[in-house]
Design a protein around this nucleic acid. Structure first.
Lengths: 172, 172
DNA sequence: GGCGCTTGGTTCAAGTTTTAAACAAACCTA
DNA sequence: TAGGTTTGTTTAAAACTTGAACCAAGCGCC
């Protein structure tokens, strides 16, 4: 089968995207390393934890949300734990499980550094986009996501937003 | 000054973008590592070299195009040289300079692996975007780029032979 | 219950990459 | 020619990632 090369338009888009994502990730890492002492991925872990009702998530759930391997997550959480931002707990309902819980200190770091992070994201991105473009970005991002990890429409179980088979009693 | 948090729309866009870029870079790295024995960044270096008329670029020019530090580039080129994909040459006009030149072997690797790479980019991205979205992606990417590295409209210096755009078949 | 298969998560070893700082040589300008 | 800048490399230390191997606990099934 003959290769379908990128059209000039696609090529421009591709290059713009690659350059932009490199610069953006760099800027984010630098800012967060500076202000929070951790790279973007680690900050994101804390952020995700902070959003669940109990500020904790099963390792596998967290890994899936972050789109990283469990192994990578284990390493990251180990560091976050060493730094006191996260605490590991045993899962009561599944003895194999581990739950990563945001500590008060971790939450404090998040609260202290979130404004700077948001400011960076704005300065690097949203301040330069029209509302339409924001919508377009979401749509494009969503499509890539769908393309790259089977579009298994695994809707979150409505009752328990924060878990795999839980930290909570299994619903029957 | 009070923090301007992200609006719900911005937040959705941001998350979609972060997830997508992680997945995309991962997929690309995996495919290229598999087929070409090198990660995306390294492939991109070869690709950029292949596009110049003489298949060679000054280290600094290359670093600027790639949006990476010279130090990082030195490391990368060292490996590419060890693998025989690139050769370092002294720059005749500036004795401080080093020129990275694509070897025939490097070119061969590129030609052999480009189809697979393009296929991956299509499968992960362009096959799921409308032509309008391709344009939108370019525009958004360009804006980020401009935002993050001063918009010095540095047009290519007129004199130097291999700092000019390519006429060759697009390999990326 | 007991036998396998799957899942959750960690560990391990090895390698890869990154960063920042320091440096030397060459260039440039006055 | 002195002084400042640019080029590119070196260095040393960290940080990160990967993949495979592994164990323990759940699950299904007869």
């Amino acid at each position: 089968m003959t290769t379908r090369w990128l059209t000039p338009e696609e090529q421009r888009a591709w290059r713009a995207y690659v350059a932009a994502s490199l610069l953006l990730e760099d800027a984010l890492d630098r800012q967060l390393q500076q202000d929070a002492g951790m790279p973007h991925l680690y900050y994101t872990i804390l952020a995700y934890l902070s959003e669940t009702p109990e500020r904790r998530l099963r390792m596998t759930d967290l890994a899936e949300r972050l789109k990283i391997t469990r192994s990578r997550l284990t390493y990251a959480v180990a560091r976050l734990e060493k730094d006191g931002h996260v605490r590991r707990e045993a899962c009561r309902w599944d003895k194999r499980g581990t739950v990563a819980a945001l500590t008060d200190e971790g939450m404090a770091v998040l609260e202290r550094t979130a404004p700077g992070h948001v400011a960076t994201v704005r300065a690097a991105l949203f301040d330069h986009l029209t509302p339409e473009q924001v919508g377009q970005l979401e749509e494009i991002g969503t499509r890539i996501e769908r393309a790259l990890q089977g579009d298994d429409a695994e809707s979150a179980p409505e009752g328990l937003p924060w878990l795999r088979r839980s930290v909570n009693p299994p619903l029957l």
